[in-house]
Amino acid sequence: NITNLCPFDEVFNATRFASVYAWNRKRISNCVADYSVLYNFAPFFAFKCYGVSPTKLNDLCFTNVYADSFVIRGNEVSQIAPGQTGNIADYNYKLPDDFTGCVIAWNSNKLDSKVGGNYNYLYRLFRKSNLKPFERDISTEIYQAGNKPCNGVAGFNCYFPLRSYGFRPTYGVGHQPYRVVVLSFELLHAPATVCGPKKST
């Protein structure tokens, strides 16, 4: 009989979020998941679920829940969905086509923008091939755009693969920082350890 609540607040209220190319993952297990707390949290810009209804989450049990978190621009949030393409979905964070879970995003301009620009948040701009679902690539190898080998030196046709967002408070909404948490639900042939409040007695 599990009684402790799942530590969703640790994920959602973290002081610093990860850059999207180096997205953070927390495994959540052996706890009671009260999703209504999240669902009623006012400032969400997006709360979209795939393969599961957000209002039914509290009735369900899962083997594991993974909480992935990172920061992207407002106009990139739409790429955090199954079957998407674009710089983020291709080179930074890719969801599987059969994704079961929820994508939760909110504007973090007050936290993550600075006058003069916040350059701490990076994304991958160049990559030889697209990421596989949930693949994480933190390499900083110089990207070779031409035929000539770069030998690890940036220059003509040789690019550092990461780019900084440089968030400023005055940017338009599409270019403002958004914090994103992706909850993915794993249902294995194993005992369920993460259940909603109704199922955990």
Rank of each mutant, 00 (worst) to 15 (best):
residue 9 D to Q: 10
residue 142 I to S: 07
residue 83 G to K: 04
residue 159 Y to H: 07
residue 154 A to W: 11
residue 108 S to T: 14
residue 35 Y to E: 14
residue 164 S to K: 08
residue 111 L to A: 09
residue 8 F to I: 11
residue 81 A to G: 00
residue 51 G to Q: 08
residue 85 T to N: 14
residue 174 G to D: 11
residue 95 L to I: 03
residue 109 N to R: 08
residue 45 F to L: 08
residue 110 K to V: 02
residue 85 T to R: 06
residue 190 A to Q: 11
residue 197 P to L: 14
residue 139 S to G: 03
residue 163 R to H: 03
residue 5 L to N: 14
residue 184 S to C: 08
residue 169 P to G: 00
residue 147 N to F: 15
residue 3 T to H: 10
residue 37 V to M: 12
residue 16 R to M: 10
residue 74 G to R: 05
residue 90 D to A: 10
residue 173 V to S: 04
residue 85 T to S: 04
residue 160 F to Q: 10
residue 41 F to G: 14
residue 157 N to D: 15
residue 84 Q to A: 15
residue 157 N to S: 01
residue 166 G to S: 12
residue 141 E to Q: 14
residue 43 P to A: 05
residue 3 T to G: 15
residue 84 Q to V: 10
residue 16 R to L: 11
residue 19 S to H: 00
residue 169 P to H: 00
residue 78 S to H: 13
residue 45 F to P: 00
residue 198 K to G: 06
residue 130 N to Q: 14
residue 163 R to Y: 06
residue 7 P to L: 05
residue 51 G to H: 02
residue 81 A to Q: 02
residue 43 P to N: 14
residue 83 G to M: 15
residue 39 Y to E: 15
residue 188 L to P: 08
residue 47 F to A: 11
residue 154 A to C: 04
residue 27 R to E: 04
residue 191 P to N: 15
residue 116 G to T: 00
residue 161 P to T: 01
residue 94 K to R: 11
residue 149 P to G: 12
residue 168 R to A: 01
residue 39 Y to A: 13
residue 143 Y to L: 06
residue 43 P to K: 09
residue 56 K to R: 07
residue 193 T to N: 02
residue 196 G to Y: 11
residue 114 K to G: 00
residue 111 L to G: 03
residue 201 T to I: 08
residue 131 L to M: 08
residue 10 E to D: 01
residue 192 A to W: 09
residue 54 P to K: 09
residue 153 V to W: 07
residue 123 Y to H: 00
residue 184 S to W: 12
residue 156 F to H: 02
residue 189 H to S: 02
residue 14 A to N: 06
residue 27 R to P: 07
residue 58 N to M: 14
residue 67 A to M: 00
residue 156 F to M: 14
residue 18 A to R: 14
residue 168 R to Y: 06
residue 3 T to R: 03
residue 66 Y to I: 14
residue 37 V to I: 04
residue 48 K to Q: 02
residue 54 P to H: 14
residue 36 S to M: 08
residue 26 K to Q: 03
residue 120 N to K: 03
residue 201 T to C: 08
residue 63 T to K: 15
residue 80 I to V: 13
residue 185 F to M: 12
residue 56 K to H: 09
residue 42 A to N: 05
residue 2 I to M: 08
residue 3 T to V: 05
residue 51 G to K: 01
residue 192 A to E: 10
residue 36 S to T: 03
residue 39 Y to K: 15
residue 151 N to P: 13
residue 200 S to W: 01
residue 129 S to K: 14
residue 98 D to T: 03
residue 193 T to G: 12
residue 116 G to F: 00
residue 87 N to L: 11
residue 140 T to F: 15
residue 142 I to R: 04
residue 75 N to G: 07
residue 7 P to G: 10
residue 87 N to D: 12
residue 199 K to L: 01
residue 3 T to P: 06
residue 59 D to H: 11
residue 190 A to G: 12
residue 29 S to A: 07
residue 117 G to P: 00
residue 115 V to C: 00
residue 33 A to V: 11
residue 186 E to G: 15
residue 148 K to Y: 14
residue 46 A to F: 10
residue 122 L to S: 14
residue 39 Y to V: 14
residue 170 T to F: 11
residue 60 L to C: 11
residue 148 K to S: 03
residue 141 E to K: 01
residue 111 L to E: 10
residue 110 K to M: 10
residue 30 N to D: 06
residue 57 L to I: 15
residue 97 D to R: 04
residue 126 F to M: 03
residue 60 L to H: 07
residue 5 L to F: 03
residue 189 H to G: 15
residue 128 K to T: 14
residue 148 K to L: 04
residue 122 L to F: 12
residue 9 D to T: 02
residue 22 A to Y: 06
residue 189 H to K: 10
residue 42 A to S: 03
residue 2 I to K: 15
residue 56 K to V: 11
residue 152 G to E: 14
residue 45 F to S: 07
residue 129 S to V: 04
residue 75 N to R: 11
residue 190 A to S: 08
residue 126 F to G: 15
residue 160 F to V: 05
residue 87 N to Y: 14
residue 114 K to L: 00
residue 37 V to N: 01
residue 1 N to T: 07
residue 191 P to E: 06
residue 55 T to R: 04
residue 166 G to Q: 08
residue 85 T to C: 06
residue 40 N to A: 10
residue 132 K to R: 14
residue 45 F to Y: 09
residue 105 A to Y: 00
residue 1 N to V: 06
residue 114 K to H: 03
residue 52 V to M: 13
residue 116 G to L: 00
residue 171 Y to T: 08
residue 180 V to C: 03
residue 83 G to R: 06
residue 46 A to L: 15
residue 173 V to Q: 07
residue 110 K to E: 12
residue 147 N to T: 03
residue 189 H to F: 06
residue 196 G to F: 05
residue 44 F to K: 13
residue 106 W to I: 02
residue 89 A to P: 13
residue 87 N to C: 02
residue 63 T to E: 11
residue 119 Y to V: 12
residue 16 R to Y: 12
residue 114 K to I: 00
residue 19 S to A: 07
residue 18 A to P: 08
residue 22 A to E: 15
residue 157 N to G: 04
residue 111 L to W: 09
residue 45 F to K: 02
residue 111 L to I: 12
residue 29 S to M: 05
residue 192 A to Y: 04
residue 198 K to P: 08
residue 26 K to S: 10
residue 27 R to S: 12
residue 41 F to M: 15
residue 58 N to S: 04
residue 111 L to K: 01
residue 12 F to L: 03
residue 177 P to A: 04
residue 129 S to H: 11
residue 200 S to C: 15
residue 1 N to E: 01
residue 113 S to T: 10
residue 201 T to M: 15
residue 192 A to S: 11
residue 22 A to R: 14
residue 128 K to C: 01
residue 163 R to N: 15
residue 146 G to H: 02
residue 190 A to T: 02
residue 1 N to R: 12
residue 26 K to T: 14
residue 55 T to E: 14
residue 130 N to F: 10
residue 9 D to R: 03
residue 117 G to T: 00
residue 2 I to N: 15
residue 53 S to R: 05
residue 197 P to M: 10
residue 83 G to H: 09
residue 149 P to N: 12
residue 142 I to C: 05
residue 186 E to N: 05
residue 36 S to A: 13
residue 147 N to A: 15
residue 98 D to N: 10
residue 194 V to D: 01
residue 95 L to V: 08
residue 120 N to H: 07
residue 85 T to Q: 11
residue 64 N to R: 08
residue 98 D to H: 07
residue 194 V to I: 05
residue 160 F to E: 13
residue 151 N to W: 05
residue 120 N to P: 14
residue 187 L to G: 11
residue 149 P to T: 10
residue 10 E to M: 01
residue 196 G to R: 15
residue 163 R to I: 01
residue 63 T to Q: 15
residue 117 G to Y: 00
residue 3 T to D: 03
residue 41 F to E: 08
residue 9 D to N: 07
residue 110 K to T: 02
residue 192 A to V: 13
residue 116 G to A: 01
residue 56 K to L: 02
residue 11 V to I: 01
residue 64 N to W: 09
residue 120 N to V: 13
residue 50 Y to F: 03
residue 189 H to M: 04
residue 140 T to Y: 11
residue 188 L to E: 12
residue 104 I to M: 00
residue 132 K to Q: 11
residue 199 K to M: 04
residue 53 S to I: 14
residue 5 L to E: 03
residue 196 G to P: 15
residue 194 V to G: 04
residue 83 G to L: 15
residue 152 G to C: 03
residue 163 R to K: 01
residue 189 H to R: 06
residue 190 A to I: 11
residue 199 K to I: 12
residue 40 N to Y: 02
